[in-house]
Simulated scan of single mutants.
Amino acid sequence: MSSEAEGRFHMVDVSPITSGPLPDTPGAARRAWLRTEDGVRIEAVYEPSTATSVTDPAGSASGTAVVLAHGFTGSAGRPAVRRAAQVFRRHAHVVTFSFRGHGRSGGLSTVGDREVLDLSAAVRWARELGHARVVTVGFSMGGSIVLRHAALEKGTDARADAVAAVSAPARWYYRGTPSMRRVHWVVTRPVGRLVGRYGLGTRIDHKPWDPVPLAPFEAVPLIAPAPLLVVHGDRDPYFPVDHPRMLMAAAEAGGGPAELWLEHGMGHAENAAADELLDRLGNWLARP
C-alpha cells in the first residue's frame, strides 16, 4: 500500500468551526469544534503553557504547540489524557481533542484509519492560533495515527515538525496477546460494538477498512527529516517489544533522526505513563 494511494482522501481543506485569536486571559483554555476534510465534527481544547518562558505577559503564543492523540476508547476529557496534557503544559502549549466516535466528537471510530483527518484538523487549528512549530504525540491507537499522519501530511500546513509514538503497534491485525484479542472482539463483533458504545463510550464503524491503510512500519520511513521518538513499555500487555523494534528498524531504513525509549516496568499507553516519563516526553517535544 503506497502513501500516494492512501492520500487520495486528502481532498478538501480543513477549517475550524470556531476560530480567532488566542484567549485574552493568560492560562485560559479555548474550546472549539473542528470540521474534518470528510465533514466530521471534532471537539478540541487549546491550553496555553504554564511555563513563563513560552508565554508572554499578554498570554499570546510563542514556542511549540503539542497536539495530543489519545488511545482507543479515550477522549479529550479522560483523566489519563488530562493528566498528560497538564504535564506537557510545563513545556509547551497543548491541544487535546477527541477522535471521531469518541467523547463528544461526531462520527464513528474507524480504529485508526480516517482518524488521520481528525489529527490534521487539530494540527491546522494549532497553526491558525499562531504556532509555527507544531508537534504530535500519540498513545496506542493515537500512536499509529501520528506516525501515518507525519508521513502523509509531510510538507503541508498540517505537517508535524516532530512526532512521538507511545505504545504504538507496528503492524495491523495483531492478535498475539489476550488484550488485543479482546480489542478485536469489540471492533469486529456486533455485540462487541454494543459493548464499545454503551460500556466504553466509543461508537465503532462496522465497515471493514477499504483500502487497508498504510501500516505504521510502512509510514515510518516516510517521516524523515522530522525527528521521531518511539516510546514503549517492556511490560505492555497489548503489543510486545518487537513492535517498537520493528518501528525503529523502519526508521533506520528511512534515514531520519529517531530514538527509542524502552521503559522498564511500564505497561500500556497514557494510563501507564508515569509523570516522570511524561515530563521527559514533554521536554523532548518542546526542544527546537
Rank of each mutant, 00 (worst) to 15 (best):
A224M: 05
L260S: 06
P211W: 07
A269H: 02
F239V: 04
A253V: 14
V241C: 11
P211E: 08
M246T: 15
W261F: 01
G265P: 05
D205K: 10
E259S: 13
E276A: 15
P225D: 08
D279A: 13
W209R: 15
A273L: 15
V230R: 06
N271Y: 09
N271I: 12
A258N: 01
D275K: 00
K207T: 14
E270R: 10
A273N: 03
R245T: 05
E276T: 14
P244K: 07
D242M: 02
L229D: 03
H206F: 00
N271F: 08
A258D: 01
G267R: 13
L260G: 08
D210A: 13
A215K: 00
P213M: 02
V230P: 01
E263W: 05
A249Y: 02
G255P: 12
A224S: 15
I223S: 12
L228T: 09
P240G: 14
G233M: 08
L229V: 03
F239S: 01
R235W: 03
M266C: 12
G254Y: 09
L247T: 01
G282V: 06
P208V: 08
H243I: 05
D279C: 01
Y238E: 13
I204Y: 04
V212Q: 13
P244E: 03
G255L: 10
Y238T: 00
V220E: 04
P227I: 06
D205I: 02
P221F: 11
D205N: 13
H243N: 07
I223L: 07
D234H: 09
F239L: 15
E252Y: 00
P244F: 09
L229T: 06
R280E: 15
G233C: 07
A219F: 05
E263S: 02
I223M: 10
F217N: 09
L228S: 04
A258F: 07
P221N: 04
L260D: 11
G265D: 08
H268N: 05
G255M: 09
V230L: 13
H264C: 02
E252K: 14
L222E: 14
W209L: 10
A226N: 04
L278M: 13
N271D: 15
H268Q: 08
R245I: 01
A215Y: 03
M266A: 11
E259I: 00
I204R: 06
L260N: 06
E218I: 00
L214D: 03
L277A: 08
V241S: 12
D210F: 08
P257M: 05
A226W: 08
L228Y: 05
E218P: 00
L222W: 04
L260A: 09
H268D: 02
D205P: 01
A269K: 03
G267W: 03
G254D: 10
P221W: 06
F217T: 03
M266F: 11
I204T: 08
P227M: 07
A219E: 02
R280M: 11
